[in-house]
Structure formats: C-alpha cells, structure tokens
Design a protein around this nucleic acid. Structure first.
Length: 784
RNA sequence: GCUGGUGUGGCGGAAUGGUAUACGCGCUCGCCUUAAGAGCGAGUGGGCUAUGCCCGUAAGGGUUCGACUCCCUUCACCAGCACCA
C-alpha cells in the first residue's frame, strides 16, 4: 500500500473533475433544484482562512444535495470594485484594473486547491462592464420610479479617502477602511430612497424567511421605526413619541445645525451661541460621543408651551441631532433622563408631568434609517449614468447608451476632486436631449450596489439584452441558503433585501425575500486567540497548510472545530489530529473490500445504519462537527475488526466524500478497480488504462464518487438486540439492565426485574415504593 | 443604556426532559524501537473511610419520578446598536 500523500492525489482529481465538467449545472432542469450561495469574496489577492471556512460549508452542502438527487447550483463571483484596488494602485503604481484581475486569477487557482464544486461558468465580476451596465440600468429605473434622487445633505466625509461614507461604513466615528476620523460635510450626492421601503423591510413575527434572529432584530433596530407626533411651539416644530408628557416641557432644544438657530439667537447671546457652534464643529464625532457632560447654550429666545401656556426658553445643544426627527425637541426633564441631566447642568426648571396631556399636532412616523447615499468621489466603481447640461440640467444617460464605461486612463491620485474629472475626453459629452456640450457625472457608485443583486445575475450572466431572464430567475430563486458574515447585517444583507423589493416593484420578480435561509458563519482567529491580521503577524496561510496536510485535512479540521458559527483560534495540533484520522481512513483499504465477507453481524449493521442516519440528519441541520464525529466513531469500530466488507467500506467513503472529496475519490476508484480486476475480466491492465476503458462508461460505479447516490439507512437495523434500561431510585441511577428487545414493552416484567436486581435491592430493601415510571427502552424510575 | 446570544473536564466541544462530558486535542502508562518520532493498546471530571459511595453543567431557588435542557432571581462574558427625543 502506498502512503497517503495528499499532494499526489489532490491536484490530479481537481484536474479530472474540471476536464469532465463534473460540477456544471444545467439550469433548464428545474424539477428538483437547489441554489446554495456563499457571500462573494473581495478581490484582495489571496484566499484567507475565512474563505476556506465558509466555502467548505457551501461545498459540503452542494455535494450532499447533489448526491440526494438535487440539481445543485453553487456559483461564485468577485466583488472587484472598491477602494483597496485604488489605494494599492496609488501605492505601487499598478492600475486598479490590472491589480484586480491579477488577484482574481490567483484566487481562482486557490479555489481550485480547496476542491470546491463551484460552477465557474456562472459567475460575475463586478468591474466588468457586462455586469456594471446593469447597476446603471437599475439606477435609471430607480430614477424613473423616484427611488433615486440627488440631494444635499450633511454627510460622513473621510478626509483621508476623500469620499462620502454611508452610515454603515462609519465605525466608532472612524472610517471603516482607513480609520481616519470622519467629519460632517454638506455634499450634493445621489441617494437610493431605501426609507420608502422601511416598513416593508421590518421583519415580522413570525419571520417571513428563516434568517437569524440576531440579524432580524439588528435590522429592525437599525430601521428604528417610532410612532409619534409633530408639535408646534410657535414657529418651532418638534418630534415626540410621548406627546402625553408635553405639559412638563420646560424648555426646547435645537440641534446646532438647525436652520432656525440664527433667527432665534438674540443680540445679547450672539457671541456665546456662535462660539458654542464653533466648538461643536471642532469636536470630532468620537469626542462628542465619549464625553459624558452635556454642553449647550441659551439662544436668548422664548416660545410658548401650547399645553401649559408657559413661556419656555430655547436652547441649543449637540445632544439633539439634526439627522433625526425635526432636529428640535421639547425637553421634559421630569420624564426623560437626558433632558433631566441637561436641566440639572444648566439649572433649568423641572416640573411634574401629568402624562395625560393631549396636545394638538400631526401624527408622524419616524425612522432611524436614512436614505442610502451611493455617490463616491473615487475612481474604481460603477460610473453613475448621469450627464449635466447647462441648458437641460440633470439628464439621465439613455438606456441604449449603456454601459457608461469606466475610462482606463485617469489620474487616480487623490487631489480633492474625483479622479474621473481628470479624464477630460471622457467627461466631455453631447447632451442626449439637446445635443449641446455637456459633462458626465464624475462620481461612482458605492460598491455595495454591486453586491446588492449579484446572485440574480449568476443565473443569466451573459445576457446583454436584459438584466436577467425572468423565467430562469423565477425557477431558481429564492436561494435555498445564503452563507455569510454577521458583519453584513446592516449593510449588504439589508441593501440586497431592498434591491429585491425594488426588483419586485419593477415587475422583474414575484417574491419579496431573496433567500429562504441565511446563516452567519463564525470566525477562525489566529493561534493566540486574536483576529488574524497582517500587522499582528498571526495570519495562518491556507496555501501553506495545504502543502503540509492537504486540502481534505484542512476542510475537515475547519468543519470539526465546532458549530458553523464558532469563533475560535486555529490550532495546529487539531489539524494533526484530523490528518491522523485521514491516515487511518487511508489505512482501512488494507482490510477493506473483501467481497465474500457479508454483513451478518448485527452490531456491524447497526453501526453502519446508525452512521448513515446521523450523518444525513446532521448535514440537513448543518451540524458538520457532529457528522464528522459520527464518522470517527464508525471508523473506530471498523478499525477493531479483522476485515471490512465492501459494502461497509463503500458506504464509509460515500458518507465522507462531501467533507473530504479527494481522498474518498482516490479510495473509491481503487476499490472499484480492484474488484473489477478480481473478477478476472481485466487482468494485466493498469489502473489508468482501466479508467479510460469503455467498460467504465457502462457501469455507474466507475463514475466519480461524487456522482454516487447517497447511502440510505433502514430503521430496522438501528435497534440493539439488547436494550439498556436505566434503573433510577429517587432520581439516582442505581443499575442498568440489559433487556431483550421482545419484552421491552412489558412494563410489569421490567419493573419486577428492576426491583429484584441486587443493586436496586440495596436501596429498596424495607422501603415502600410509592410510584414507578417506565419509559420503554430508556428508564425505569422508582420513588420510595 | 437597549437588543440578541453564551456560560459544561486541562482545551475545542457533545447531549435540548431520561446513564452529563460523545468525538477530537492534550496528558499518563504500556507495547514496538539502538534511539527519537510515528504507529498500536489502556487510562484520563473532582473527592472519599474506594468490590463501593458522595459531589459535579456560572450562583441561588422552583417545576418534575427525573433538569445542562423548562420557569424565576443574580452574576460573568461575547456581539451589535446607541444622546433616536
């Protein structure tokens, strides 16, 4: 027997599977289909452990479902637009496109070494005009529907990356990419009106799709719907969710950015207010959030509280946000903690509220969610299909002129204006309306637009006429399962739901939710328990690990670590353990495949059927770790035997195949070929010749193990001949009886046996049995 | 502060009302070996007056013949959101 050397078998089978097109999906066969998706990777250059972890899960599911007879689609693409490409370009003097395509090439090869069953013919690349043309098309459609608009808003601005950031991309007041402190700046930009669908985006109870509770609650929280009222305090409108406390409003507070601030400020207060506003502006978001003290300044003006009739002062303070409600509040220090703190700090009156006030006002629903700002002042993204004409104003690019292609030659170094502005020939354009001289929009779309709908495009990725064929999408969507990271809860996972709803309103699809099930995967940390990062130097490189242990061992190791959502460090000893397991599987061929050996032994049959059942059920429930444990238990059983029958051996390989596709394929082909030559028909033929011979095509067993039907279990083998029944006395285990199957349902007999057993007698002697409970095949419980 | 989640051996974890610690790692002992490693076999929650018994799933209480599992209280940790009026 040859030694198990993964490097000798893994590339060989990867090549063969690819040549034979084993994983190509025929989309016209929709009788029993299964679409499994893993979040597409960003083209950063290398697959990291996280990719291995999530794509192994997806791959195991794809292989398992295929073996159950499903027509499985498991595609993948690349999130290829974005800032890192541009930053790398600036740093290394390589064009973002070249950098991206080089990375993509390397990543495709790495996906192959992982042994995934991805169908690469159904793919998409975000920076390909064939793809982003449809981003532009969606933009135009949304513009028509009033779901895209241009507006001027205070926005998060990253001074280092020189771009606007969505709320979701600001972490602790810092840019999620470069960590620079974000400042507020008023900018004209394009928005998607996600707030128009805020109500529809709220998750119901029970949920309309099987998505994690954590995600549903998180999104609902982020959407932040609250019902309240707009009340008028003279000219000032405030929003409140508790109008019944308005009799206790003893002052008003305006956000420093509120448009009425300058009007309301009196001459005497002018200097103080102006210096206060100046100090607010100079504080960063972070400082503002961290300081516990409240700050503010009196405007000098008073307004009338319409309920109490009192004149109350108007203050200006930054604990009131311009971006929520009306940017002004009535302060009820008696009922509100923050107002109370402010009142105490500035010695403002606190009066009791009746909680019964009924002010007149207008009902209003308010959301925390803001419209999605999609303009980015950078180069490497989808051009926004808009033309500015001096005569006609803002003119959308006509559909027939799509795609608006991103010019290759630009000066993408940041210089305070969008890089596309430097491509003067590209910018200069005829107005589609009047034919006069005009200029293109020089900003690009947020890359989250690319990933908001890519899974639709996989299904019809070559289509130049429409975004996708409605029928194919109707046949294949929604996704059966979408595997992704919890960090996308408020970004990608929300945007893609929004896009799906927009597609429905455009009549492209008929469903609201694009994935029946979503799961959040875990994280593999560095060996020391910290997040892997280059700067920490604790990155475990999958390529290196594959060289030492092979892809199968890494796949199994990752899946065996724990549940799919586990957050846990990488441990080399653990990989050793799995490698050892694979070597034992490899060694099994020594005593395996003995044809004459039939499965007479009941325990052998029981172990086999038990394992089939366990692995099958665990895969359905995505419990990869316990499925592997069951396979280990069966291997322990098989290892103790002198010989292993062909049926057991083949079943074993079949069950292990989704987890470890290479070693099982090799062993499968070996055992099939060996039995063929045992039959005498194929002597003096080498393995390779045999594989290519015509005989193989005639017999299904000669096909890849990944095309074999999934093993079936039969309940009749599951029962043990003698069943263990535990004897409990007053809740404590005192004895275990071995009971023949045929009397297991006779309560009186079992009760007598349990009562009379010497061990039980020790505890029962001279005591009165008050009650006995018998659960067949499990337990008999006495109360004395 | 709000929301969601978690708490089990030396470690990752298993068991979701019925023998707690499956499976793996680590460790101990033994076999094999010139030796080391690998491999194979046995053991591995704690305690004790040890053929047996007691304790034990963050802490305390409850329901039940029986609780890691269900209910109540408390504590700790993780994640997300957060001056949202």
């Amino acid at each position: 027997m040859q030694k198990y050397i993964p490097a000798n078998i893994e590339p060989k089978w990867q090549k063969k599977w690819k040549e034979e097109g084993l994983y190509l999906t025929n989309l016209s066969d929709t009788a029993k289909k299964y679409y499994v998706l893993v979040e597409l990777p960003y083209t950063s250059g290398d697959l990291h452990m996280g990719h291995w972890f999530t794509f192994t899960m997806g791959d195991i599911l794809a292989r398992f479902k295929k073996r159950l007879g499903f027509n499985v689609l498991f595609p993948n693409g690349f999130d290829a637009f974005g800032l890192p490409a541009e930053n790398a370009a600036i740093k290394h003097g390589i064009h973002p496109r070249d950098w991206t395509y080089q990375n993509m090439e390397r990543m495709r090869e790495q996906f192959e070494t992982l042994g995934t069953s991805i169908d690469w013919t159904k793919t998409m690349v975000a920076c390909d005009p064939k793809y982003y043309k449809w981003n532009q098309w969606i933009f135009l459609k949304m513009l028509e529907k009033g779901l895209a608009y241009q507006g001027k808003l205070l926005s998060n601005w990253c001074p280092v990356d020189q771009t606007v950031l969505a709320n979701e991309n600001v972490e602790d007041g810092k840019c999620w990419r470069c960590g620079a402190g974000v400042v507020q700046k008023e900018v004209i930009q394009w928005f998607f009106k996600i707030t128009a669908l805020a109500d529809k985006l709220i998750w119901q109870d029970p949920p309309q799709a099987d998505w994690p509770k954590h995600l549903r609650e998180g999104q609902n929280n982020w959407i932040g719907k609250s019902e309240g009222m707009i009340l008028d305090f003279d000219r000032i409108k405030v929003f409140t969710t508790r109008p019944q406390t308005s009799d206790g409003a003893t002052f008003l507070v305006l956000a420093p950015e509120h448009p009425l601030v300058s009007k309301l400020t009196t001459k005497e207060q002018k200097n103080d207010v102006e210096s206060y506003i100046k100090s607010v502006k100079s504080r960063s978001e972070l400082e503002r959030k961290e300081s516990k003290e409240k700050t503010g300044e009196f405007s000098g003006s008073f307004v009338k509280n319409p309920v109490s009739g009192r004149q109350i002062p108007v203050w200006i303070a930054d604990y009131v946000l311009m971006g929520y409600g009306t940017g002004a509040i009535m302060a009820v220090p008696y009922a509100d903690e923050r107002d109370k703190q402010f009142a105490e700090q500035f010695k403002l009156p606190i009066i009791k509220t009746s909680f019964k006030a009924k002010p007149s006002g207008q009902k209003q629903t308010q959301y925390h969610l803001h419209d999605w700002s999609i303009s980015r002042q950078r180069y490497w993204g989808t051009p926004i299909p808009i033309i500015y004409c001096d005569k006609c104003g803002v003119v959308p690019v006509p559909e027939k002129d799509l795609p608006v292609e991103l010019p290759y030659k630009v000066d993408y170094a940041p210089q305070g204006k969008p890089p596309l502005a430097t491509a003067e020939d590209w910018v200069r354009v005829e107005c589609p309306k009047c034919g006069g001289p005009a200029k293109r929009e020089v900003e690009t779309m947020d890359t989250f637009v690319d990933s908001a709908w890519y899974f639709f495009r996989y299904l019809d990725n070559e289509n130049d006429e429409e975004i996708f064929d409605k029928k194919i999408v109707a046949d294949w969507m929604p996704l059966e399962i979408y595997i992704g990271g919890p960090e996308h809860t408020l970004g990608h996972a929300l945007y893609s739901r929004f896009f799906t709803m927009v597609f429905k309103s455009l009549g492209l699809i008929k469903f609201d939710e694009y994935a029946k099930k979503r799961i959040h995967h875990g994280t593999i940390l560095g060996p020391g328990g910290l997040r892997m990062s280059k700067s920490r130097g604790n990155v475990v490189n999958p390529d290196k690990e594959v060289k030492s242990y092979g892809a199968d061992a890494i796949r199994l190791y990752l899946m065996f670590l724990g549940p799919y959502d586990i957050v846990t460090p990488w441990k080399t000893e653990g990989v050793n353990g799995i490698y050892h397991f694979l070597q034992r599987v490899w060694g099994l061929q020594e005593k395996a495949g003995v044809d004459s050996l039939s499965l007479r032994d009941h325990e052998d049959m029981r172990m086999m059927h038990r394992t089939i059942k366990k692995v099958t059920e665990d895969l359905v429930e995505l419990k990869f770790n316990t499925a592997i444990a069951a396979l280990m238990e069966w291997l322990n059983h098989l290892s103790r035997k002198e010989q292993v029958s062909k049926e057991e051996y083949k079943t074993y390989l079949c069950l292990l195949a989704p987890f470890a596709p290479h070693i099982t394929e090799e062993l499968w082909q070996n055992v099939i070929l060996r039995s063929a030559s045992d039959e005498g028909s194929l002597t003096n033929v080498s393995s390779n010749e045999l594989r290519d011979s015509s005989l193989i095509a005639q017999n299904d067993e000669f096909q890849s193990i990944h095309q074999q039907p999934w093993p079936q279990f039969n309940d009749k083998y599951l029962a043990e001949e003698k069943v263990k029944v535990v004897v409990q006395i007053n809740g404590k285990v005192r004895d275990v009886l071995l009971i023949q199957k045929d009397i297991i349902n006779h309560k009186e007999v079992i009760e007598k046996m349990a009562f009379n057993s010497p061990k039980s007698q020790k505890f029962l002697k001279g005591k009165l049995v008050k009650k006995s409970v018998y659960i067949p095949s499990k337990i008999i419980s006495f109360v004395v």
